[in-house]
Design a protein around this nucleic acid. Structure first.
Length: 267
DNA sequence: AAGACGAAAGTGGTTGA
DNA sequence: TCAACAACTTTCGTCTT
């Protein structure tokens, strides 16, 4: 089965990294509400030292007309403020460009379909961002986004599901391996340990051990196993903290994985 | 003393009659 | 609309290192 990798070729596991890795600068197309398509009419001095009054007035009128036309349709105002709020939110979440752009597209489509009527703009934006993260394989949980965007988790979940159903959009469930990579990074594990955690996850996936389980829990468990096997031991508590699951959950997944995958751990 | 283990009861969300 | 259900949490007592 082909899974499209629509995300960036790099991953950001923290806001700082995203800032480092993101290639910024023009063209900013999707983030400007008119896609940067509008021709900007310069001011009246434009090259020449002076223009006669007639030309000046023509240019002035043109500029005025154009300024108005850029924010013309009634829905366009919410689009503009929405997109700038979206970009702000994406920045505090440390999202890579691709995720930001994808979220913009989703938000635009939501507006076109009149889905934001009577709903909280902030919430719909957060939902679009969450959706885009899953689409781009960026490891951000619903909780993380809810916390950082300062919206209620329950409402965000509802908004997301609403978007998910309304825009008929293919959104893969978030893959545990992206979380494993994130955890390994935050725990300063070696590449060897990280690779091992990911291999464990792939094995687990083959054996259908992952469906129905929270991705973060499984990823945390395989990360824990990897630290034991490579002698880079971290406590369950440390990992639990980073993964935002409890030690008990790690233990439960860990027990299953050891048993089903027949991994031997040193005593 | 700190970490790992696991039983038992509780929480919030999904599902299906 | 409600009850059953699964995943996960909280709490806490007991082993292990």
């Amino acid at each position: 089965m082909g899974v499209f990798h629509t995300g960036p070729e790099w991953n950001a596991y923290s806001p700082e990294q995203a800032a480092e890795k993101a290639r910024t600068g023009p063209p900013m197309t999707l983030r400007l509400h008119d896609g940067g398509l509008a021709t900007v009419v310069g001011d009246a001095r434009n090259g020449k030292k002076s223009l006669d009054i007639d030309e000046r007035q023509k240019l002035y009128a043109l500029r005025k007309w154009q300024a108005r036309s850029r924010i013309s349709e009634p829905s366009d105002g919410t689009l503009t403020t929405g997109l700038s709020e979206l970009t702000k939110m994406a920045a505090t979440l440390g999202l890579p460009r691709a995720a930001n752009d994808t979220a913009s597209i989703l938000y635009r489509r939501a507006i076109k379909k009149r889905l934001i009527r009577g709903r909280s703009v902030t919430n719909m934006i957060a939902a679009a961002i969450y959706m885009s993260c899953r689409q781009c394989g960026v490891p951000r949980t619903l909780d993380e986004i809810a916390t950082l965007a300062m919206v209620d988790k329950k409402v965000l979940g509802r908004s997301f599901r609403f978007l998910f159903h309304s825009l008929e959009q293919f959104v893969p469930p978030s893959a545990p391996r992206t979380y494993a990579a994130k955890f390994a990074n935050r725990l300063n594990l070696s590449g060897k340990a990280e690779g091992m955690a990911i291999r464990i996850l792939e094995k687990a996936h083959e054996m259908r051990l992952t469906s129905g389980r929270g991705p973060a829990g499984i990823a945390a468990a395989s990360t824990y196993i990897a630290t034991v096997l490579t002698n880079e031991r971290k406590t369950q508590r440390e990992i639990a903290e980073i993964a935002n699951v409890t030690e008990v959950t790690i233990r439960n997944r860990y027990k299953e994985l050891l048993q089903k995958l027949m991994i031997e751990v040193p005593l």
